[in-house]
C-alpha cells in the first residue's frame, strides 16, 4: 500500500516553507521516527520525521522549492 506524506504545519505564522535537504532517498527503508527531510521557515530549520514504516518510493519536491502546508512531498510504500 502507498501512503502519502504531506507537509505538516510547523509555524503558527506561516504556511509556506522553504524545502531543505532530503535525508532519505527513493528506495531507502524508513522507520517511524526517522528524519525524512528538513524545511525552513521564520528563521527555524525543522527536521520532519516519518509517521510510517516502509520504503520511500518517491520524492515529490526538491531542495529550494516552496512548499505549502498540506502539499504532497513524498510517497512511502508500506507493507
Amino acid at each position: 500500500m502507498i501512503k502519502e506524506v504531506h507537509m505538516p504545519k510547523l509555524s503558527p505564522k506561516s504556511d509556506e516553507y522553504f524545502f531543505g535537504e532530503w535525508q532519505k532517498e527513493p528506495g531507502d527503508s524508513v522507520e517511524v521516527g526517522d528524519i525524512l527531510f528538513e524545511v525552513e521557515t521564520d528563521k527555524v530549520v525543522s527536521q520532519v520525521e516519518s509517521q510510517e514504516k516502509g520504503t520511500l518510493q518517491a520524492q515529490k519536491v526538491a531542495e529550494g522549492d516552496t512548499v505549502k502546508v498540506g502539499d504532497l512531498v513524498a510517497t512511502i510504500k508500506v507493507a
Binding site: L10, G33, I35, D42, K43, V44, V45, Q47, E49
Partner: peptide, 21 residues
C-alpha cells in the same frame, strides 16, 4: 515581531532555531 531584540528601534540581537524530533 521578527524575534529580534531591539533597543530604541535598532537591532542588537537576532535569533534562529534548529528543531530535531
Amino acid at each position: 515581531s521578527r524575534n529580534d531584540l531591539v533597543v530604541a528601534g535598532a537591532k542588537v540581537s537576532g535569533s534562529a532555531q534548529y528543531v530535531t524530533p
